[in-house]
């Protein structure tokens, strides 16, 4: 078996994330894919606003910090000027599916040749656990203290399901990182997204169901269980769309 060490595409800066937050796992998977494809020198990453706002300190490739929700537009600007580079965004649910809905949908409709890593943990983590577009019905958050009432707050946004209807999308896949087997699948999906990009085949988005132990008020291990019991039934894992657009 090979040794297991931190991938080169991650810097030595320790993650600031809370204990058990799965952001760190997803960061590592992206970095491993960058290492394996040997594209660190040709990759530009775009960070969101949210918990992963400081991802620019963690990735060793060139990095840009975008305004809230605008990462796909920023990525478009980089990619159109540099079509042979790899461009990925790393965004949370508030960033991608609320304030940045238009940027997400339209980067997808253009078949923008970028890879979007979408962290769905059903909450606004950085600001202290408010309702996100992906908060589950009945879920208690700081701004849904009696549970998300769909008569008042409406329904969760299912990003992969929406993207599956968009012609410009080459890959929309939902994965999770609750255990090594799922982590392997998540990494394969991320790799697939970057491969689509390499072959200039269209927009790829990998939605990763993730935990937020701090704002869920659960231990890291309990959070994994809560994710499996509550999120996966509402957000089924799997490939929602796959196939070259171009």
């Amino acid at each position: 078996m090979p040794d297991f060490t931190k991938p080169h595409a991650l810097t030595d800066v320790p993650f600031h994330y809370c204990p058990g937050c799965t952001h760190g796992i997803v960061h590592r998977l992206v970095a491993e894919v960058i290492d394996e494809m040997e594209i660190e020198g040709d990759t530009i990453g775009i960070c969101p606003v949210g918990c992963s706002v400081m991802a620019y300190d963690y990735f060793n490739c060139d990095m840009i910090e975008a305004a809230h929700g605008r990462a796909p537009a920023v990525a478009t600007g980089v990619k159109r000027a540099n079509p042979d580079k790899f461009v990925f965004t790393y965004q949370g649910d508030g960033d991608l599916a609320a304030i940045g809905t238009a940027e997400t949908i339209h980067a997808a409709t253009r078949g923008e040749n970028i890879t979007v890593i979408f962290i769905n943990n059903t909450t606004y983590g950085m600001t202290g656990g408010q309702m996100a577009p992906t908060t589950l019905p009945g879920q208690v958050t700081q701004t849904t203290p009696y549970g998300r009432n769909t008569n008042v707050e409406g329904f969760p946004v299912k990003v992969c399901e929406i993207l599956s209807q968009i012609s410009g999308v080459a890959l929309a896949e939902r994965v999770t990182v609750t255990d090594p087997a799922n982590i392997r699948k998540a990494k394969a999906a991320i790799r697939k997204g970057f491969e689509f990009q390499k072959n200039k085949q269209g927009f790829s988005l990998i939605e990763v169901l993730s935990t937020c132990p701090t704002n869920w008020g659960k231990s890291p291990v309990e959070s994994l269980e809560w994710l499996k019991e509550n999120m996966i039934p509402y957000y089924p894992l799997g490939v929602y769309k796959e196939g070259a657009v171009r």
Binding site: I44, I46, I64, A66, A67, R70, A73, V74, A75, T76, G77, V78, K79, R80, A81, N82, K85, A102, E103, I105, H106
Partner: peptide, 26 residues
């Protein structure tokens, strides 16, 4: 060169932000 009609003014200026970040006149 590149001409792109964005989905909004907000997107357009953020495309400029990305493009300018990569050192290209835009």
């Amino acid at each position: 060169g590149v001409f792109l009609q964005a989905e909004s003014e907000i997107a357009a200026i953020n495309m400029v932000y990305g493009c300018a970040s990569s050192g290209i006149r835009c």
